[in-house]
Amino acid sequence: MKKVKKISMLFVIVCLLNIQLTASAAFWNVTGEKMIHDPSIIKEGNSWYVFGTGEAGKNGIRVLKSDNGTNWYTTPVIFPTALSWWKTYVPNHETNQWAPDIQYYNGRYWLYYSVSSFGSNTSLIGLLSTHSINSGQWRDDGLVVRSTSSSNFNAIDGDLVIDKDGNPWLSYGSFWSGIKLTRLDKNTMKPTGSVYSIVSRPNIPNNPVEAPSITYKDGYYYLFVSFDRCCQGVNSTYKIAYGRSKNITGPYLDKNGVSMMNGGGTILDAGNDRWKGPGHQDVYNNNVIVRHAYDAENNGLPTLLINDLNWDSQGWPTY
Rank of each mutant, 00 (worst) to 15 (best):
T303R: 14
V288Y: 11
V14A: 15
P212E: 11
T266L: 08
E94N: 14
D159W: 06
P208A: 11
G300L: 08
P100D: 03
I78M: 10
R291G: 00
F11E: 06
E297F: 15
I125H: 09
G173I: 06
T303M: 11
K65P: 00
H292S: 06
S66Q: 01
G264P: 00
D141A: 03
L181A: 04
L301W: 07
S174Y: 10
V145S: 00
N154F: 14
S66K: 05
W72C: 03
N207V: 01
R201I: 08
P317G: 00
P202D: 01
Y222T: 08
Y49V: 03
I306Y: 10
P251H: 03
G271S: 02
P302E: 02
N29F: 13
L16F: 14
A23W: 11
G264E: 00
S84D: 13
K276C: 04
V283P: 06
T81C: 02
T192M: 06
Y104V: 09
A26M: 12
N203A: 01
I42K: 09
V77R: 07
Y252T: 00
D101N: 15
T122Q: 12
W316E: 13
G107H: 07
T88H: 10
Q103C: 14
L128N: 00
L309W: 02
L64E: 07
G166C: 10
D218P: 04
I267F: 01
T122K: 09
Y221K: 04
G107I: 11
H280K: 09
G219H: 13
L17P: 02
N154T: 15
Y294E: 03
T81S: 10
R108I: 04
Y49M: 04
Y73I: 03
A270S: 14
S245F: 02
G265V: 12
S129W: 06
Y294C: 01
G32F: 13
P302N: 06
E55W: 11
V115R: 02
F224L: 13
G69T: 08
K34F: 10
V199D: 01
Q20Y: 15
M261D: 04
R108F: 04
A82Q: 10
P39M: 14
Q97I: 12
G54D: 05
T81A: 05
P76Y: 08
G300A: 09
A26L: 14
W176R: 10
M1K: 02
G250N: 03
I179C: 01
S149W: 06
K43G: 12
V283N: 10
I156L: 08
H280D: 14
A56V: 13
K3Y: 06
A241E: 01
N310F: 13
L301K: 15
Y49W: 15
K34H: 12
Y242G: 02
N71H: 15
G257A: 02
T74G: 01
I133Y: 10
H131P: 09
N18M: 11
Y105W: 01
S24M: 00
I179K: 04
P168W: 10
P168A: 04
I41E: 05
Y221I: 06
W316D: 14
N286R: 08
R229D: 12
K3H: 03
V145F: 08
E33V: 15
D273G: 15
H131Y: 12
G277A: 00
